[in-house]
Amino acid sequence: MTGPELLPAPPRPGVSTNTRGDDLYRNRLGRLFATVPFASACPQLGYAIVGYFSALQIQTMDSAHKVEKLALLHVVVAASSMVAQPLIGVLSDRTRSRLGARAPWMLVGTLTGCIGLVAAGFSTSIAMLLTAAVISHVGFNAFGGPLTAIQPDRVPPHRRGRYSTLAGLGTIGAGLLGPAIGASFATRIGLGYSLVAALILLISVAFVAINPDRDNRRAPRRPFDLATFARTFWISPRRYPDFAWVFLGRFLLCGGYYMILGYQLYIIEDYIGLS
């Protein structure tokens, strides 16, 4: 996702200025850097809490087939997320509103994701849980995709390394916090879902309010081409071997990671013998 710069043009590195525009730019960029770790934590916290609680819920609903049912949930959720994020990204690029291109999707996305979390807490069947998990993941992808686009939109190239680091710290922190929260509410799953949803909603709305977009209603909009969108899912490994190697490496790394993470609870219970 790409878009026009939403902040005033940054001062050149090494050039000292005291203009009001430069001060405003620095203040906005400072707020963005200070708050992005918390915003980046929101989608990951939602994913983590669904992954932790759904394993417990499925085990309660169908203990004999828990592995297969949890695998089904992970596959459906992953497939829906794989389609949702790039599609929402394309739509976000073409969104024109008083709140800008990203904020409307971030607000709707986080609200949708939180509704999915609360619904998951009330699920009484695997079908209900699966539906709620898909809703929550699609919602948090609608938040996370436009959030990622803020970097090319607003952050100058020489500051993007620091910005990416701060965003990554938020993601890692949420990955650690999710299981801790899940363990604390393992016997009160509905309450745990609701508290996490409230926390995510509060942080997300605060981030959008503190870091507002510019009104882009008069900006030109490129037409949407479904064929062009479909072609973005394929990059020739022959023409772009570096990309192919990076993709393969990330695929194997993430595949191995999630093979263990997704079934961690069942491995600990069934093979290590802990409760």
Rank of each mutant, 00 (worst) to 15 (best):
G139M: 12
R159A: 09
Q59P: 00
A71Y: 09
G121I: 12
R102V: 02
S63K: 14
S81F: 02
L117N: 05
S81Y: 06
I150M: 08
G139L: 14
F143H: 09
A133H: 03
H158V: 08
A103N: 09
G139H: 10
D62H: 01
I126A: 12
A120R: 05
T112Y: 04
V76Y: 06
A101V: 00
L117R: 04
G161C: 09
A71S: 15
A119C: 14
L56N: 14
M61S: 13
P152G: 01
D93K: 06
I115W: 03
G113M: 12
A64E: 12
I135R: 04
V83G: 05
G121H: 09
R102E: 06
R159G: 02
L70Q: 15
A167T: 00
S81D: 02
D93W: 06
S54Y: 00
G139D: 06
L87D: 02
L70Y: 02
L111T: 10
T110G: 01
S63R: 15
V134C: 08
G121P: 00
L72P: 00
V134H: 03
V108R: 10
L99R: 11
A119I: 12
W105C: 13
V108F: 15
G109W: 07
P156R: 08
I58R: 02
L129N: 08
S125F: 04
G113Y: 07
M61D: 07
I150H: 06
L56K: 07
S63H: 13
G139W: 08
V138L: 12
T165P: 01
I126E: 11
M128S: 15
R94P: 05
G89S: 03
I150G: 11
T60V: 10
T112D: 04
A71R: 06
K66P: 09
G89P: 00
P86I: 09
Q85D: 07
H65N: 15
I58V: 15
A103H: 06
M82W: 09
R154H: 05
I88A: 14
V90Q: 14
R159H: 10
A103K: 12
V108Y: 14
V77M: 09
H158A: 05
F143M: 10
P146C: 05
A127L: 14
Q85L: 05
D93Q: 11
P86Q: 11
V108K: 04
D153P: 01
S54V: 07
S123F: 07
A78I: 03
I135K: 00
G116P: 06
D62W: 00
A84Y: 01
V90T: 12
A133I: 02
A79P: 01
H74A: 15
R94M: 10
G116W: 13
I88N: 10
F140N: 13
L91R: 11
I58W: 02
D153H: 01
T95L: 12
A133G: 08
L111Q: 03
S125R: 06
I88V: 15
K66I: 08
P86A: 11
L111D: 01
H137Y: 10
G161N: 03
I115F: 08
P157I: 06
M61N: 05
P86T: 10
I115P: 00
R96Y: 10
L87C: 07
I135E: 13
G161T: 08
F122G: 01
S164H: 01
